[in-house]
Amino acid sequence: MEPSTRSKAIMEFLKPRVGARVKSWLEICTKCGQCADTCHFYLAADRDPKMIPAAKVKYLSEIIRRKGEVDDEFIQKAYDCIYHECNMCRRCTQFCPFGINIADMIALTRALLFSQGVCPEALRSAIKNYHETGNQMGVSEEDWLDTLTWCEEEMESEIVGLKIPVDKVGAEIMYTINAREAKFYPQDIQEVAKIMHVAGASWTVPSKRGWDDTNLSMFVGDLKTSRTLVENTFARATELGAKKVAITE
């Protein structure tokens, strides 16, 4: 039987990514079960064996074994497992006596699904926002600057001389936020402004793309977008001559 278009695409995606490291991880796992108790999904599901981290890797090994010949039902099952039954927290990986990076393989499975157009809808729309506006919430540059202005104005009545310096060249620290703050938690921006002012920090906030330090594209394995986001932040820091980039929290 001729390989299907999907299987060809899957194998093409996996070829450069499944090298000796991933192959040996898949081979040396003895299913010892040490990772079971490390997983909060497993513990919270009355020790359901399908929640054991090592078992969640089976989708990747099965795809490789079948040379990418998997149907929609299989993809759906893989999706349900790697998105709904794993936070990619890496705790299982810390406890594996063989040093198998289970979390990396879950991340690879997510990236594989993304390469086939499968990912959570809400994350897909966040990625669309990143591309259109540079931030996950789709905040326009005008609204961003407006938010910073009123955050500053409100705080001026509490702290004498408080400023939120925008695009200040030569500031030591370039501060970036989670775009959710701009939309839902502006008090977070105000609290940091207050701390920075009292600490006498030399700081600034960029007006252009790069001020959102979240990287949700990472969670679906969209590394191209991931990279762009990090590059945006570094480009702003370089332009402004900042020595450090601080992220919220």
């Binding site: 927290c89 705790r91 959570p120 994350l123 949700l216 679906v220």
Partner: peptide
Amino acid sequence: YCCGGGGGAIPMGGEM
């Protein structure tokens, strides 16, 4: 332990 909100679980919204 992870809080259960990581790996995109919070921004995935109602689905998760």
